[in-house]
Simulated assay, not measured.
Amino acid sequence: MHAEQSDLVRRAAVHAALAEPVRLAMVDALALQDVSPKELGARLDLPSNLLAHHLGVLERAGLVVRGRSEADRRRSYVRLLPETLDGLVPADVRGLARPSRVVFVCTHNSARSQLAAALWARRSPVPAASAGTRPSPHVHPRTVATARAHGLDLVTGGTAHVRDVLEPGDLVVAVCDNAHEHLDRRSGGTSTDRLHWSVPDPVPADTDAAFEEALTLIRHRVGRLAAAVDTAAPGRPA
């Protein structure tokens, strides 16, 4: 079996094991401490036969192991294997290397890319920048107001063209469809150091609500990417 397919099968088995409320509750109970089967059954009000069944499913999925007590060998304790939960992240995310910088790109570099860089600067120590494929002369006033309302510092006071910003080792995140497709044409669709977030442009609506919605969409994505980057090994593949 191909390694990627094997990884999908393994992850599917873990998801299947967790897709049952009792087993998910068992994993939750083991998140901070090791518990004896008897204690676990009492906590979840499970009869011994159901406890044994659910523990068996979790063991076969590689989520928990049982070990004998060093004090009383008649007792055993169930221990969670958190690395199995970490492995639920897709392989291409687990293989992400920490970039030297993250550059957020939209069309005009006046709204989405500016907010993304500001959110990133708050969330991650990895430096951030922003740029546009057809930059406007200035940052949109509602971008400035939205950033100020959320206590965000815009990374720069102006706009810039992507060709003047990108450097080797950058991870590019296109935060709009136009920029993504423009960059795709330039690279021939072969770039591996770029991500795409399809965030609607708030500028045509030009309302506080539209800018707030864009900020919310970007914030969630920034959080997920920053978590992956924070745990990645330094340096990007050649």
Score class of each variant (00 low, 15 high):
P125L: 05
L96W: 11
W120A: 09
L85H: 01
S76E: 15
F104A: 05
R122A: 15
A128Y: 01
L85S: 08
L81Y: 06
P99V: 04
S110D: 11
S76A: 14
L115M: 10
V78I: 06
H108I: 11
V126K: 04
Y77M: 12
R122E: 15
S124R: 09
E83G: 10
H108M: 07
T84C: 05
V78W: 06
A97Q: 15
A116Y: 04
L81P: 00
V78E: 06
G95F: 11
R123C: 14
S100G: 15
T107K: 06
E83F: 12
A116F: 02
L96V: 12
R79V: 08
A111G: 01
L85E: 12
P90G: 01
S113E: 08
V103R: 03
R101Y: 06
S100L: 12
V102E: 10
S110Q: 14
L80Y: 02
S110V: 03
P127G: 00
S130A: 11
T107I: 07
H108F: 11
E83C: 05
D86L: 13
A129L: 08
L80Q: 09
V103A: 01
L96D: 10
L88P: 12
R79E: 13
C106V: 02
S110P: 00
P82D: 13
A91G: 11
R112Q: 07
G95M: 13
S110A: 15
A111E: 01
S76C: 13
R101P: 09
N109E: 08
R123D: 12
V103Y: 01
A129G: 08
L115N: 07
P125Y: 09
D92Q: 13
A118K: 00
L115T: 09
S130V: 06
L81N: 09
R75H: 14
R94W: 09
L85K: 07
D86F: 14
P90H: 04
A97D: 13
V105G: 05
Y77P: 00
G87M: 02
V126S: 03
P99Y: 07
Q114S: 05
G95D: 14
V126A: 03
P125W: 04
A129F: 00
R79T: 13
S110K: 05
V93R: 15
T84A: 15
P125G: 02
H108V: 09
A91D: 12
A111S: 14
R94S: 07
S124G: 10
A117S: 08
F104E: 03
A97C: 15
S124A: 15
L115R: 04
V78M: 06
D92T: 14
Q114F: 07
V103W: 07
P127H: 00
S124H: 13
A116P: 01
R79Y: 08
A121Y: 12
P82R: 05
Q114T: 04
P99G: 06
R79K: 11
D92S: 14
P127N: 00
S124Y: 12
R112W: 02
L80V: 01
S130R: 03
S100V: 11
E83W: 12
V78K: 04
A97P: 10
A118M: 10
